[in-house]
Amino acid sequence: MEAIALEQQILASIRTLPVQQQHEVLNFARFLHQKAANKPPRRSLKGLCADLKIQITAADIDEARQEMWGTFPREIV
């Protein structure tokens, strides 16, 4: 959907609402705008741990999985 057409649909829909509900829509739009503006950029887990200088190999991961799930029953009767 084209942005202008969407905007026109939103305006047409809002115009049919009572004034109090129009204020609610405005408050909600402001909330969404503020929420988007205050959202900090997400960092990857790899980036967060990069300064720790930890090297985890696939073998380390396999070993940890075996320790965690090694005694877990494969088939529940």
Rank of each mutant, 00 (worst) to 15 (best):
M1N: 08
M1K: 07
M1Q: 09
E2A: 14
E2M: 12
A3W: 05
A3T: 06
I4M: 07
I4R: 15
A5Q: 12
A5D: 04
L6H: 02
L6D: 09
L6I: 05
L6V: 04
L6R: 04
E7A: 13
E7M: 08
Q8E: 15
I10L: 12
L11C: 07
L11Q: 14
L11F: 11
S13N: 13
S13K: 11
S13H: 06
S13D: 11
S13E: 15
I14E: 02
I14V: 03
R15A: 14
R15S: 13
R15P: 01
T16V: 05
T16E: 07
T16A: 13
L17H: 09
L17K: 08
P18V: 01
P18C: 04
V19C: 07
Q20W: 11
Q20K: 13
Q21E: 15
Q22H: 06
H23K: 14
H23I: 14
H23F: 10
E24V: 14
V25K: 01
V25C: 06
V25Q: 03
L26E: 08
N27M: 14
N27P: 06
F28Y: 05
F28D: 03
R30A: 15
R30E: 08
F31T: 09
F31M: 13
L32T: 06
L32M: 14
H33R: 14
H33M: 13
K35A: 10
K35W: 02
A36L: 12
A36S: 10
A37T: 02
A37R: 11
A37V: 01
A37H: 04
N38H: 09
N38R: 10
N38K: 08
N38I: 00
N38E: 14
K39Y: 10
K39F: 09
K39Q: 15
P40C: 00
P40V: 01
P41K: 13
R42F: 07
R42W: 06
R43D: 09
R43Y: 11
R43M: 11
R43H: 13
S44H: 02
S44A: 02
L45E: 00
L45H: 02
L45R: 05
L45G: 02
L45D: 00
G47R: 09
G47A: 10
C49W: 13
C49T: 03
A50I: 08
D51N: 12
D51R: 06
D51K: 08
D51S: 11
L52E: 15
L52P: 03
K53N: 13
K53Q: 11
K53V: 03
K53R: 13
Q55M: 12
I56Y: 01
I56E: 00
T57S: 04
A58F: 05
A58M: 06
A58R: 05
A59S: 07
A59G: 02
A59P: 00
A59C: 02
D60H: 00
I61D: 10
I61A: 04
I61P: 01
E63A: 10
A64Q: 03
A64W: 01
A64K: 07
A64E: 04
R65N: 12
R65T: 09
E67C: 02
E67H: 02
E67S: 02
M68V: 14
M68R: 12
M68Q: 11
W69L: 15
W69E: 02
G70I: 00
T71M: 00
T71Q: 09
F72Q: 14
F72V: 15
P73W: 01
P73E: 00
P73I: 02
R74L: 11
E75F: 08
E75P: 06
I76H: 04
I76A: 01
I76P: 03
V77W: 07
V77A: 12
V77T: 08
